[in-house]
Design a protein around this nucleic acid. Structure first.
Lengths: 169, 169
DNA sequence: ATCGTTGCAAAGCATTTGCATGCCT
DNA sequence: AGGCATGCAAATGCTTTGCAACGAT
């Protein structure tokens, strides 16, 4: 596996993820590299892909990579911290590239929307997922902490609701 | 199926649910009655059961009821509005008896905790689910409505976080 | 008597696992 | 070279479905 293979266009985000993988002592394999590229492309298109959907796209990119490997890869990449996953209401789990703590490490190219922690809200009518600033839940977070001692983690699961387009009114 | 069978202790909540079922033109069968009793008992114990767990308890109560029927029953009871379900982060879905609009219709016996809409927060360490007043999310709800036109439905999916007992600190 | 509901069993689908081989470091 | 990751295929677990029989109204 040689991700520096000339001719293979690579985003700064994928390059950063590969670097972090290596630093963590993890091997960079064909399967892992393909998964990273698929998730990066989805992130850039504001898409939220499930394990299964990622598997399908990886199959296009690298037909030799087995489905089971995609699942194992997703698990290990999440463990390593290179990817993070968000649980959607419907029971699906979607994956994101995790943003590094210091953006400066990786030269430009980050889209503004990806620079901050965000929560996810999903429309249970059309299924679309919207990213919203985590600060929206600051007050709720504070209340839960004070009254229950519960630390709300809005990055880890989506909240359901109805989007503007699907309103009955 | 005769839920008025003397000697079968029945809570006011189950009685109300049965009434609402009949009013909706739905048949009250052994399977449906058993599911209602199981869910009611869980509610009263502040437990949150998944379809699978409900199936197991129904099997104790009515061994003749098939697992597949429990799934179909849960679906139809939710459709009718007698039950409501909440998606937990881990991918499980748990069920509740839906509270009727007017409490007065059903003579006493409602526990205070069940009289109001509530949201669910789940600890991703220990898995326990806590009920919290829906008002905790009022500000977030208002912000999302104003800025995105998104109607947040906190009753339909649990938020993840870490409970007091599982804090690293 | 009618027609919705159920039991049964089999199919379906996403995900996981054991094991030998392969390949990244 | 050495050990982790992979391919393969079978198993798993939850949920759904087709169909005939059953039973609530």
């Amino acid at each position: 596996m040689d991700p520096s293979d000339p001719g293979r266009p690579e985003s700064a985000r994928v390059a950063g993820a590969v670097t972090r993988l290596r630093e963590a002592g993890e091997r960079v394999t064909t399967a892992r590299y393909a998964v990273l590229r698929v998730v990066d492309a989805a992130d850039r298109a504001d898409e939220h892909l499930s394990a299964e959907q990622i598997g399908a796209r990886v199959a296009d990119l690298e037909p030799a990579v087995h489905r089971a490997t995609v699942y194992r890869t997703l698990t290990s990449l999440v463990d390593t911290g290179v990817l993070s996953h968000v649980h959607l209401g419907g029971s699906a789990t979607v994956y994101h590239l995790t943003e590094p703590a210091t953006l400066e490490e990786y030269e430009g190219g980050y889209r503004r929307e990806h620079q901050h922690e965000h929560a996810h809200v999903q429309c249970h009518e059309c299924g679309r997922v919207f990213d919203v600033p985590a600060e929206v839940f600051d007050e709720a977070r504070a209340t839960l902490r004070e009254q229950l001692g519960f630390e709300l983690d809005t990055g880890h699961a989506a909240l359901l609701g109805t989007c503007r387009d699907c309103h009955p009114t």
